[in-house]
Design a protein around this nucleic acid. Sequence first.
RNA 1: GCCCCUGUAGCUUAAUGGAUAAAGUAGCGGUCUUCGGAACCGCUGAUCCGGGUUCGACUCCUGGCAGGGGCACCA
Length: 565
Amino acid sequence: MAAMIVEKIKQSIMEALKSLGLSIPDIYLEHPADILHGDYASNVALVLAKSQGGNPRELAEKVVRYIVQQQLEEVEKVDVAGAGFINFFLSRDFFAGNVRKILESGEEWGKNKMLLGKKVMVEYTDPNPFKEFHIGHLMSNAIGESIARLIEFSGAEVKRASYQGDVGLHVAKALWGKMKKPNVKWGEAYGWGAAKYEEEEEAKKEIREINKEIYESLYGKGSKKKDLLELYSEGKAESFREFEKIYKKLGTFNEKTGTGFDYYYFESYSGVYGKRIVEEHPEVFEQSEGAIVFRGGKEGLHTRVFLNSEGLPTYEAKEIGLAFLKEERHPADIFVSITGNEIVEYFKVVLAALRRINAKLAEKIVHIPHGMLRLPSGKMSSRTGDIVTAESLIDEVSKRVKEKMSERATGKEQETIEAIAIGAIKYSILKQGMGSDIVFDFEKSVSFEGDSGPYLQYAATRAHSILGRAGSADNVERVPKEVIEIERLLYRFPEIVERAAREYEPHYVATFLTELAGTFNSWYAKEKIIDDTPESPYKLALTKAFHQTMMNGLFLLGIKTPERM
RNA sequence: GCCCCUGUAGCUUAAUGGAUAAAGUAGCGGUCUUCGGAACCGCUGAUCCGGGUUCGACUCCUGGCAGGGGCACCA
């Protein structure tokens, strides 16, 4: 397989530097904002002039002379501009060849080999049984699914994992609520139990008792209260079924296994594991006020409790256990964990402790924290009952899509409506960088115009519609002289995918697709694609290449491309 | 008080130390003789405040200010 053009250009720069007897710094290429500055630009001359002295422009001229001698077929022109930038202009043939390549590659278009042969496990979503699947989980799911797909596109074998809190006070609250009010849903039972826990001493006492009971039954001591355990299993199974339905809807679903995730981990297991591991490593942990703690002070971290004074594992010990559990069940090269950023500090402590127990395992763990999805009123919380469930959000947005669609004659299939609604929601989550919060304004956040999921889907369906009308679109013979702007974007797709995967940042893909769709829409507005000019077949091929790129890109965001909308 | 994250047009967000800071939305003005108007074109509008490093800073360092998160037996 031919190397990506960006690699070829880098190579040619390196050879030029070598011939000139210069040292070779890290070379990176950028796409200049202004097309007058070429398709790629390099600042090596500026970098070298800085480290070794000399005039950057003169240096650039020398480098260019060597590059020109190499006669790269894809490069039409190389020149020096500005302070000493080397600008590369790609040839007409390169762009046409790329269109051909897209059509040949189809669903494979955009893949890279960065992680070829690697095994990667991605953990995300992590909803807790007995509680509602809220929009925070939706956010984690959207991000995790996209990252999983990006990693798959980079050549790795990906396993999806979800880690769920099936023990702890929240479970006891739900169980207590359900026992008092057998007819309400689990989510509601939890909300009510949580409220009473704060309000009434008696309730608090009973809930703590239930918590202990569950723990003891799980830790092998058994329990006399058979009905409580039955209710517990029932609730867990019920949650599982509910979650699976949502995963299917969201597109996190493996047809082969018939489940959303390849691996499910539970705190009840990771807790047992973690407790044992902590106890086996007294050289790492220490006793303090009756608890077992890890002192992170040396590394500028907090001291955190791993086993509480009752000997029960906390979040930290469970996370340690989880790391070993994952490695045992599916040894991988990279374990990615997607979580909210409120636990970054804890995660650092966990990793610091793990490093001393098993440095190799700790090395393989990558924590990707994301911002929070907040409501205008404040933090998302299921404790106060002030929550928006994923289900209700999808329903609400679907309703609006339906209204919008009823203005049209065709296509009111539920499937399409949901694809658009979920596309809108996912896009609003994935269009921005991982770090910052999203303020979720019910009215504005999910728009159908401009910078939105439906905008991307719409551009794709337009292209699809033209292709349906035209029949064949595989003729890349009569190439027009002028390079069309879309061509200058299309070839960049694999680079974008690779970068997004490398940095675990799906928003690079989202931003790129938006630019691409906008360019297509502009072109579409002023250019007739199906006409009787000799260029028409090429324009059709270009339309098909655009459509393929949109489909692959949207797939990477976990968004479906409807045929009509 | 200490630690971490974030401050970019009115609002929501882009920008790999690089060339004139890019979009969407809101506002104003256009395109309606269509291969699909959820579209297209134009105008208005921004790097929180000081200092520093650099040929070059939204980006790196430093001091403030503002917002969020975290600071031992919850997750």
